[in-house]
Simulated scan of single mutants.
Amino acid sequence: MISQYRMKFDLVGQSVLLALALIVVLGEWWLWALTVVAGLALWQTGSAFHLLAAYAYRDRKPYLWVLGSLLILLPFKFWLAGYWSLVLLGLAAFTYFLITLRDTIVVLRRPRSFWDI
């Protein structure tokens, strides 16, 4: 059973990185934007692997496939579209954030177990 602390920690970490990514993109610091979006993608990939390995939570598998294919195609997309190729990575990261938010709400609504007290 996924703990409330784990989901809250994951959600706060993603929120901070997503807010930083929005600030950097709106400030038009493109090299920093690439760095922050890559950091967010690494955080989310680690989170997805942890949920898949530790809790056998298979709903995170599609994200790993999508992110993997986007990262493999990133040099080609970067050659074609430049910094606009980060939009797909940003959309994937935002979608994963929304899924994490939904799962956190579900975890917070369930009755607490003895080990969470």
Results as ranks from 00 to 15, higher is better:
Ile2Thr: 12
Gln4Lys: 11
Gln4Leu: 01
Tyr5Ile: 12
Tyr5Trp: 10
Tyr5Thr: 08
Arg6Ile: 08
Arg6Ala: 15
Met7Phe: 14
Phe9Leu: 13
Phe9Gly: 11
Asp10Trp: 06
Asp10Arg: 03
Gly13Thr: 05
Gln14Glu: 03
Gln14Pro: 07
Ser15Lys: 09
Ser15Arg: 07
Ser15Cys: 13
Val16Cys: 15
Leu17Cys: 06
Leu18Ile: 02
Leu18Glu: 05
Leu20Gln: 12
Ala21Met: 10
Ala21Leu: 13
Ala21Cys: 11
Ile23Ser: 03
Ile23Phe: 02
Val24Arg: 07
Leu26Pro: 03
Leu26Tyr: 15
Gly27Glu: 14
Gly27Lys: 07
Glu28Asn: 12
Trp29Ser: 09
Leu31Tyr: 14
Leu31Pro: 09
Trp32Phe: 14
Ala33Pro: 06
Ala33Met: 13
Ala33Asp: 07
Leu34Asn: 05
Leu34Pro: 01
Leu34Trp: 02
Val36Asn: 04
Ala38Phe: 01
Ala38Tyr: 03
Ala41Asn: 15
Ala41Trp: 09
Leu42Ser: 12
Leu42Gln: 14
Leu42Arg: 14
Gly46Glu: 04
Gly46Ser: 13
Gly46Ile: 07
Phe49Leu: 11
His50Thr: 15
Leu52Gly: 05
Ala53Lys: 03
Ala53Phe: 04
Ala53Thr: 07
Ala54Cys: 14
Tyr55Leu: 07
Ala56Trp: 01
Ala56Arg: 15
Arg58Gln: 07
Asp59His: 06
Lys61Asp: 13
Pro62Asp: 00
Leu64Cys: 02
Leu64Gly: 06
Val66Asp: 01
Gly68Ala: 05
Leu70Thr: 05
Leu71Arg: 12
Leu71Thr: 05
Ile72His: 12
Pro75Cys: 06
Phe76Lys: 00
Lys77Ile: 08
Lys77Leu: 08
Phe78Gln: 00
Phe78Met: 04
Trp79Glu: 02
Trp79Leu: 11
Trp79His: 04
Leu80Phe: 01
Ala81Val: 03
Ala81Met: 02
Gly82Pro: 11
Tyr83Asp: 08
Trp84His: 06
Trp84Arg: 06
Leu86Ser: 07
Leu88Asp: 15
Leu89Asn: 12
Leu89His: 05
Gly90Glu: 04
Gly90Trp: 14
Gly90Phe: 09
Ala92Pro: 00
Ala92Asn: 10
Ala93Glu: 14
Thr95Ser: 10
Tyr96Asn: 10
Phe97His: 13
Ile99Asp: 02
Thr100Met: 04
Leu101Pro: 03
Leu101Met: 09
Arg102Pro: 08
Asp103Trp: 11
Ile105Cys: 12
Val106Thr: 14
Val107Met: 01
Val107Ile: 05
Leu108Ile: 01
Leu108Thr: 04
Arg109Ser: 03
Arg110Thr: 10
Pro111Phe: 02
Pro111Val: 04
Arg112Ile: 15
Phe114Asn: 15
Phe114Gly: 00
Phe114Ala: 14
Phe114Met: 12
Trp115Glu: 15
Asp116Gly: 10
Asp116Leu: 07
